[in-house]
Write a protein that binds this DNA or RNA. Structure first.
Lengths: 345, 345
DNA sequence: GACAAAAATGATTGCGCTATCATTTTGGCA
DNA sequence: TGCCAAAATGATAGCGCAATCATTTTTGTC
C-alpha cells in the first residue's frame, strides 16, 4: 500500500542536522582536530591511549569522515574508476567483480562506467571520471579516441588497459593476445582434420582480431576466409542458433563452426541438435571465454579459457602498487589463455 | 616485450604539473572565477558572449573541473552508490546496467560495491559509501543490519531498496514480491496437474521467500513440502545438473522440478536429457528470472519474467526525482512479474 | 636527576570550488 | 536623455580535511 504523497516529499533542508565533523569528534575527545585525523588515518604515530579516546569519541558521535574534503586536502581519493563496454556481457561482469573485490580488500572504492563499445562515449566518460580525481583508472581495450589518451596523460593518473595486448599501452596493461587465440584455434581445428569452417561472430573489435588470427593461419594453408554470420552484442544463445541456421540455410557444407563466444556456441549446439546434427560427429563447435556452463553442456564446449576475474584482480594490483610507489616488475602483464579441448571439437 | 623497470617507476611528484583550476580559466578568460563557475554550471544566467569566452578558455587550457572541491562546496556530489550481492549473477548485472545507463544519461556517476550477500559487509560498505557523500544510494534487498539502517537514516540520504517488497522500506523501494511468485508458480504447476515436486534451490534469502510462497500453496492443498536440493551461489548449469542428479538418485519419483534460477533449470534440462527423461513428458521444469537463453533452449524454459533492467532504471528515476525535489507518486514501486509458460512446464 | 633525542600533539594554512551577498552594467520606457 | 528595475558580474567566506611546520611531552642515557 503506497503511503500518501506527503510522505515522499524531499526533507526540507532545515531538518537535515549538520553532520558530525572531525572538529566535533575532537571536542568530544578533548583533542585537536589534527590529532583525531591522525588517530584515524595513521594510528601508529599516535599514542594507543589517545587512539582509544578518539575511537570512543567516534563511536559516541557516529562520525563518518568526509572523503570529499579528505581527498581535496590530501590529493588521494581512494577511488579507482573503471570503464567496461557492458555489464550484460558475463565476461566483463567477471572482471569487474575481480576488480571490485580486490580494490575493496585494500580500502578502495570502484567508480564504474559503461561505454557501450563507443570510443566517443569512452572519451566523455574519461573526462567525467577525471573530475573525481581517481587514484587510478581501468580501461577495457587499447583503442581509444586521441582525446582520451591526451586527457589521461595530462592528468598523469595511473592507467591500466585490459582485455587486449599491445607493446605501447597508455601506461600499464593486463591482457592477452586475441590474434594468437585466433591462430591457436585454427591450428587446433586444422590438426583435428577440420577444413570446412563457418564462423558465428560478434561485431566487436577484439573478436575481429581473433578472426584475423584465425584466418591468417588458414591463409598459410591456402584456405580461403570462411563464410561468417555476424551478430550484434551482447552475444546470446538465441543469436548462436540463428547464426547456425543462417549458415546452414545458405546451402554450404561445414564440418566445424567457430564462435566468438561460448553463448553463441551454446546456441549453435542447440540448433544443431534441433536439426539432428551430431556434435562433433557432423559438426564440430568451438567457443570462446570458457564461461561457467561450457564444461557442463552436452556435449561440453571446447573453448578458450581466460581468467576473467584475474584480469580485474591484477589490474587492481598494478594500480595499487603504482599508487603505493612500489615499482612494477613490468607494466605489461600477459595473463595468457588456454585452449580447453572438450567434446564439441 | 616489457620495457625496463626504470620505465615503470612512479613519476616523482615534482614532474606532475599543477592541474588547471577554475582560477586559471578565469585569468585566461579575463573574468572572475565565480563567473566561470556559473558559465559552466548554470550557463542560462550568464550572457551568451561570456559563456563563449569561458568555453574558449576551457578549451584552451584543457580545464577539467574538480568535483571533490565542487562537491564539498555545494554538498552535491553527482554520485549515486549501489550495493549488489554479486556481479557474477546475471540478474544483478542487468540491474546495474540499467541503473548505470540511466544515471549516466542524467550526468550522475555510479559507485559500485559488492556485498557477497553479507549484511555485515553491507553495513561496512554503507559506512564507506557515506564518506563519499553520495546524492543517493541503491541497495539490494530489504534485510539490513540494524547499524545499516541507522547510518542511512542519520545521513538523511535518499535510498532505494530493490529486488524485494515490504510496506516499510528505509525510504523508497523498487521491487516485487517473491512470496507471490512462489504462490504463482505453485498454482500454475498444480493447475497443469503436477503433484510430485522436487526443488533445486539456491541458498539465498529471496529465493527462500519464493519457496515459502510455493510451499504455502502446496500446504493449502494438503501437500507436504517437497524434497529440495540446496545449492550455493551463484547458480550455474553445473549445479542444476548436480541438483537433479541428487534428487533422482535419492530414489524418489518426481513429475516436476522447480528451480530457483534459469541457470539451474538449464542444468536440470541437460541432466534430464542425459538420463533419457523427456521434458516435460517425464519431468516438467520451471525456472526463474527469464534470462536471455530461457526462451531459446530446447525445450524452452518456463520461467518467471522480471524486468531486471527496469529495476535499475526506475531506482535511478526515483533517486533523481527525489534529488531534484520532485514529489514521487509513491515511494514503493512494484515492478511485478510475469509467469512465462513455455515448453518445459 | 639532567639532558638531548625522539615521540606526540597542536596551530596555521590552503586544497578548488560554490553560496551568499554586494556591486556594476544593461536595457526598457517615459 | 535620464531613471529604475533587472540582469550580469564580482568579492568574500567557508565547505571539512590533511600537509606543513611549530611546540610540547615523553623516553632513554649517563
Amino acid at each position: 500500500m503506497p503511503s500518501s504523497a506527503a510522505d515522499v516529499f524531499p526533507p526540507s533542508s532545515s531538518d537535515a542536522p549538520r553532520s558530525v565533523t572531525l572538529k566535533d569528534v575532537a571536542r568530544v575527545a578533548g583533542l585537536s582536530p589534527i590529532t583525531v585525523s591522525r588517530a584515524l588515518s595513521t594510528p601508529d604515530i599516535v599514542r594507543p591511549q589517545t587512539v582509544a579516546r578518539v575511537r570512543a569519541a567516534v563511536e559516541l558521535t557516529g562520525y563518518i569522515p568526509n572523503l570529499l574534503a579528505g581527498g581535496l586536502a590530501s590529493k588521494r581519493s581512494r577511488l579507482v574508476a573503471a570503464i567496461v563496454p557492458q555489464l550484460s556481457n558475463a565476461m566483463f561482469a567477471e572482471t569487474v567483480q575481480g576488480l571490485g573485490d580486490q580494490l575493496a580488500a585494500h580500502g578502495y572504492q570502484l567508480l564504474l562506467s559503461l561505454s557501450e563499445y563507443s570510443p566517443q562515449r569512452e572519451s566523455e566518460l574519461v573526462a567525467a571520471i577525471l573530475s573525481r580525481k581517481p587514484d587510478g583508472i581501468v580501461l577495457t581495450g587499447i583503442n581509444h579516441a586521441p582525446e582520451t589518451r591526451k586527457r589521461l596523460l595530462s592528468a598523469s593518473v595511473p592507467v591500466v588497459e585490459t582485455w587486449d595486448l599491445t607493446p605501447t599501452p597508455v601506461d600499464m596493461l593486463v591482457g592477452f593476445s586475441h590474434f594468437r587465440i585466433g591462430e591457436t584455434i585454427a591450428r587446433y581445428l586444422l590438426g583435428k582434420g577440420y577444413r570446412r569452417f563457418g564462423l558465428v561472430w560478434a561485431d566487436d573489435e577484439r573478436a575481429a582480431v581473433r578472426r584475423q588470427g584465425f584466418e591468417s593461419v588458414l591463409a598459410e594453408q591456402g584456405l580461403a576466409s570462411p563464410p561468417a554470420c555476424e551478430e550484434p552484442l551482447p552475444t546470446t544463445l538465441e543469436l548462436g542458433r540463428r547464426g547456425l541456421a543462417t549458415l546452414l540455410d545458405s546451402g554450404q557444407a561445414f564440418d566445424a563452426i567457430v564462435c566468438s563466444s561460448d553463448a553463441l556456441a551454446q546456441g549453435v549446439l542447440t540448433e544443431a541438435r534441433v536439426r539432428g546434427l551430431s556434435v562433433p560427429g557432423d559438426l564440430a563447435v568451438m567457443g570462446f571465454g570458457d564461461l561457467d556452463f561450457a564444461a557442463h553442456t552436452v556435449p561440453s564446449i571446447s573453448s578458450v579459457h581466460i581468467d576473467k576475474r584475474a584480469i580485474g584482480r591484477q589490474a587492481a594490483d598494478a594500480l595499487l602498487a603504482r599508487i603505493a610507489g612500489r615499482p612494477l616488475a613490468t607494466p605489461i602483464i600477459d595473463v595468457g589463455f588456454t585452449l580447453v579441448a572438450r567434446e564439441s571439437a
